[in-house]
């Protein structure tokens, strides 16, 4: 007699299929990225993927876990793509590798591997690198990037010196710096009128990356891979705070739309705070987690010293997850009026 257990019917789902759909949802964003900066973006993604998969395989081997089963789940590739997309394009290869190794080895496997990490691995990679290499992590190329693939490749491989023309600030950083330099003499609308850096509603070109992430995220929601709670609350966190300040002082603060489509807002909303492992699990918990991360991200990006605040905000909220989950347990069947 073989010991089989009910239920004998199992839905055709797997971790692998979930991860593949997350990867698919990133494709529109990647496509816009490539359209803006050229195929060098794909190389960055490839570097991150190879580094993450090798690190994953090494750790699995070291920990005596079934290699094929766990490599096949695709979670390392998701981490890799998120790192590649969160890091500045044209980052030197080793910067991405450092981030990838830290994410997989420390943030994931030293905490127990798949399903056990309290912190979002990609955000750990970002945080470690921006603290360790602040200059490199703050250099974002302009969208009308000069040079072809060969020049970009040389930059990434570190065989050519980094030129000023190839690096600048993110639109968020540009706004912050301009406001600081102007010391109150320039209003935000004037600064945003600079068509070299700013576009229709956020950073020139970058705003479309945000739109593409939004579309990918909505598809994930429609596929029921993610629930609406965390992304909605995250965007609400950014929107409410930026909206309030913008209404009070439109000369000193950019509009909610600008903030929602700048930096890591959309990537964070649909691909970072939705990470089930490091995020909250209860519906109310997801709302609190998302809103907290969004609000904190806004505070850090506007008032803090870093170009964007999504990574730190998410990590800080990751710490609170067990507590939030504990206090937001939904009432169970038959106990709702107690």
């Amino acid at each position: 007699m073989n010991f089989t257990t009910p239920p004998y019917l199992i839905q055709d789902v797997s971790v692998q299929r979930i991860m593949l759909q997350v990867l698919a949802a990133l494709l529109p964003g990647i496509a816009v990225y490539v359209w803006l900066l050229g195929p060098i973006v794909l190389l960055q993604i490839a570097i991150a993927t190879i580094a993450c998969v090798l690190a994953e395989a090494g750790m699995l081997k070291l920990l005596n876990k079934p290699l094929a089963l766990f490599l096949g789940d695709g979670s390392a590739i998701v981490t890799a793509w998120l790192i590649a997309l969160a890091f500045p394009p044209l980052s030197p290869w080793w910067l991405i590798v450092v981030g990838a190794l830290f994410a997989i080895v420390v943030a994931k496997h030293l905490y127990g591997g798949l399903g056990q990490n309290p912190f979002n691995p990609a955000m750990i990679a970002f945080a470690v690198c921006i603290v360790s290499f602040p200059a490199l992590m703050s250099q974002w190329p302009p969208v009308d990037l000069p040079g072809g693939f060969a020049e970009h490749l040389a930059l990434v491989m570190g065989t050519a010196p980094r030129l000023d023309a190839m690096s600048g600030a993110t639109p968020l950083d540009a706004l912050k710096t301009a406001l600081k330099l102007a010391e109150g003499t320039q209003a935000v609308p004037n600064i945003l009128a600079d068509a070299r850096t700013f576009g229709h509603f956020a950073g020139r070109g970058w705003e479309w990356v945000g739109v593409a992430y939004l579309l990918g995220g909505l598809w994930l929601w429609q596929r029921r891979i993610i629930s609406w709670h965390a992304p909605f609350a995250f965007l609400a966190g950014i929107g409410v705070l930026s909206g309030a300040l913008w209404v009070v002082n439109p000369a000193g603060f950019a509009s909610p739309i600008f903030h929602l489509f700048s930096g890591g807002a959309m990537l964070g909303a649909f691909f970072i705070v939705t990470d089930p492992v490091s995020g909250c699990t209860t519906p109310r918990g997801k709302l609190i987690f998302g809103f907290g991360a969004g609000a904190l991200a806004y505070v850090i990006r506007v008032f803090g010293g870093y170009p964007d605040g999504v990574a730190f905000a998410v990590l800080l909220l990751n710490i609170c997850v067990p507590l939030i989950d504990l206090y937001t347990q939904p009432p169970i069947f038959g106990m709702k009026n107690k």
Binding site: G113, P330, F333
Partner: peptide, 28 residues
């Protein structure tokens, strides 16, 4: 009834909690 695929770690996706007719948190 195909034999079940190998068991993987829980990723806390919460699908079980959504499916639970008694509104429990099975993953916890």
């Amino acid at each position: 009834f195909p034999p079940p695929a190998p068991e993987m770690p829980c990723i806390r996706c919460g699908a079980c909690a959504e499916a639970c007719p008694h509104e429990l948190q099975p993953f916890e």
